[in-house]
Amino acid sequence: MSEIFEISIRSIYVNCTAILISTFVAVPLALIVDFFGFRSKRFVILLFQTLTGIPPVLVGLLVYLLFSRKGPLGNLGLLFTSTAMILAQILIAIPIIFSICYSHFSKIDEKLRVIMKTLGATGFQQMMGVFRESSVGVVNAILTAFGRIVGEVGAVMIVGGNIAGRTRILTTSIVLYTNMGRFDDAIMAGAVLLMIAFSVNVLITVFSDSMEKKKWYTR
């Protein structure tokens, strides 16, 4: 039981850190790409859309090669650590959050952008306006990416190594317990994983609803 608890805490840490960093990178990036016109804009969008479908094991392999002893970042000694697992999950989540957010940002009515301009909003304020108008889409993007990485096993297995007490998380432990015939433990880990996914979904949804309902300066 204590093993499952320890694995669950590590899963929450790895998944939540990865989703937080991915959100802070991908959402502003999508806003910038939406707001500014530049030559390779279509290529950037297409690249991220393509990367949403990248097989996680391929991401795992790339991160493995990057951090392996002979790899360019081998001297950092990050292979088979939680940091490597977080990085792999970030690489999986960023294209998903970017693509969904961008599709929502780009659907904002052109007339609303004109209104923001004529009411005196600066470029940054216009971007914030677009972000706020698309907040439901942003939450949807984060939840979709979280759903993808919370159940991800291939990449974290490769870069984390499923080491007991160090890099074992719920998904990799389910694989291990199943192979060992410890089905009760596997089912327990699966149930905890579902609970974590459910709790995070509820938390994010409640948070976004409370933001939506917040009223200002009313008397």
Partner: peptide, 23 residues
């Protein structure tokens, strides 16, 4: 510029009117 067809933010009426003051 105030357009012919009303265009409002997905916010309260108060926030819509306050927008140019807030920016």
């Amino acid at each position: 510029y105030v357009p012919q067809h009303p265009i409002l933010f997905r916010r309260t009426v108060f926030e819509n009117i306050a927008y140019p003051l807030k920016v």
